[in-house]
Amino acid sequence: MSRILEEAITVVSAEHCKGCGLCVQACPQAVLALMSSFNSKGYHPAHYVGEGCTGCGMCFYACPEPAAITVYKKGAEYPDQEGR
């Protein structure tokens, strides 16, 4: 199932994230944060707090890990099964 987004969403892949925190630093809306839990590599992965994303993409370009962050802007087709 997918849907057209009315609000932007940033998705962080916890298994790709190395917890460097650059996305958290880059986010103008301060809607990204490092989790207190660990991923399988022992990093505290970043995550989207759930609301407030404007889809600016700053976190995407700040993130050094190619597959860690995906930004769905308003109007994008969003695959629901990935959402959380």
Binding site: L22, Y43, Y72
Partner: peptide
């Protein structure tokens, strides 16, 4: 402008040439 910012197609889908984990780079955090 693109509606989705995701891992660009210039990358391999899976880093098959890399030993071990094919999903992430070998670079240090940051």
């Amino acid at each position: 402008a693109k509606l989705i910012l995701e891992k660009p197609k210039g990358f391999c889908d899976s880093y098959e040439r890399k030993p071990g984990d094919h999903g992430t780079t070998h670079y240090c955090p940051g």
